[in-house]
Amino acid sequence: MDWDKLRIFHAVADAGSFTHAGDVLNLSQSAVSRQISALEEALQVPLFHRHARGLILTEQGEQMNRTVREVFAKLAMTEALLTESKEKAAGRLKVTTTTGFGTSWLAPRLPRFLNTHPDISITLILEDSDLDLGMREADVAIRMHPPRQPDLVQRHLADIQMPLCASPDYIAKHGSPATAEDLDRHRIILFGNHHPPVADVNWLAGLGRPNGQKRQSVFEVNNFMAMADAIEAGLGIGSLPHYMLVDRPSLQKISMDVKPPTVEAYFVYPEELRTSKRVAVFRDFLLSEMPARS
């Protein structure tokens, strides 16, 4: 087993086809196929089931892929630490967070960070599901819940409120609810039930309802930006993270007899990156930005 064949195997396992892996590796489909066949011949075991719709790992292939992923993840971590400047923060930092937070809050602030640290570059991955930091799917994460993996370093960043809000036009036409029961007479906008970014994202759906019943929504979409656009257009009432209201002054918060839930935001990263200067300066930047305009 040479490293080049393992690298190609890893790409094919991720891509699910020789053609897509070839595109990633800048190799022809036939060259990728030959390398995989040579690896299977050397090991004397099949690594993939071949069928018309693509490739599926065999049991032996699954075992091989788990090991290869761990090896390449550790190599990537070691490379990042070895190439990082000992004098200043430098290198690429792969950051993941939820789509709403990354689009609305983080991305507009990154120019300030990158201007202050010109030797750092950022790859931002917006994903409402948690990526595996241990497997180097990202270096660091900003998550809207305490970390579930025990081997991650964590730092609490902020408590994010989830207030109800509506447009002035909507309130002028339909009034403003004062109690949870009043919501039954209003048009409700909810986060679509597909990889919800926070546990209580649709807290108003069952608020004040008996026996766990949920009130009907007029509109659902699995994106906070689209929810905010719909609310701003006067479609209905919805719950948004309070950092989104900063750039949408036309939206009005709705005060009721119930306190909205709070989402705890955390900055997390693997133990191996505890001494990384890139991670440290990025963490300090987040902490400096959070109190000012979160």
Rank of each mutant, 00 (worst) to 15 (best):
R7Y: 10
A31C: 05
V153N: 12
L81Q: 11
M64N: 04
S85C: 06
L81C: 07
R92K: 15
M244D: 03
L164I: 06
V281D: 01
G175S: 08
F72Q: 05
D200N: 13
H242L: 12
R53C: 06
L235P: 05
P249V: 05
M290A: 14
M1E: 11
P108E: 06
E232A: 07
A233G: 01
V279P: 02
P260C: 04
A158V: 09
K214F: 15
L47G: 00
R187S: 14
N65P: 02
S217P: 11
P111S: 13
D229H: 14
L55S: 09
T262K: 10
A158D: 05
P249T: 05
A21D: 10
M162S: 05
P147Y: 10
A226R: 15
V153G: 08
G100S: 05
A38V: 07
S30E: 10
E70C: 04
Q154G: 12
S37T: 10
G61R: 03
D2K: 08
H186A: 07
A52Q: 11
S255L: 15
K5S: 08
E41Y: 14
H242V: 08
G175C: 07
A141Y: 00
D257W: 03
D2N: 15
A199P: 06
K253E: 14
V279T: 09
E59W: 01
S255H: 15
S85D: 06
H117D: 11
T97N: 03
K214L: 15
S17H: 03
L131F: 12
V281W: 12
D247G: 11
M77A: 13
Q29S: 06
T262C: 06
A280P: 04
S276I: 01
L75S: 02
Y243D: 03
I142S: 05
I188N: 09
A158E: 01
S30T: 11
Q216F: 04
S37W: 07
K94H: 12
D247W: 10
N65I: 02
A230Y: 02
R136T: 08
I189L: 08
R92L: 13
D23N: 09
S217E: 03
S37H: 12
S176W: 09
N223L: 06
P291R: 09
L251Q: 10
G61T: 02
C165N: 08
E271Y: 15
P108L: 01
L55Y: 01
G236A: 03
G61K: 06
P196C: 07
R148L: 13
H51N: 11
A80G: 04
L204I: 15
E220C: 14
D182G: 08
E127V: 05
P196T: 08
R215S: 10
P108K: 00
A31K: 13
K74C: 09
T123L: 15
S17K: 05
A172Y: 07
A226S: 09
T103Y: 12
M64I: 08
F48I: 05
M256P: 06
I188H: 07
P118S: 03
G236F: 01
V263D: 03
E137R: 13
N193L: 10
L164S: 11
R143D: 06
T123F: 10
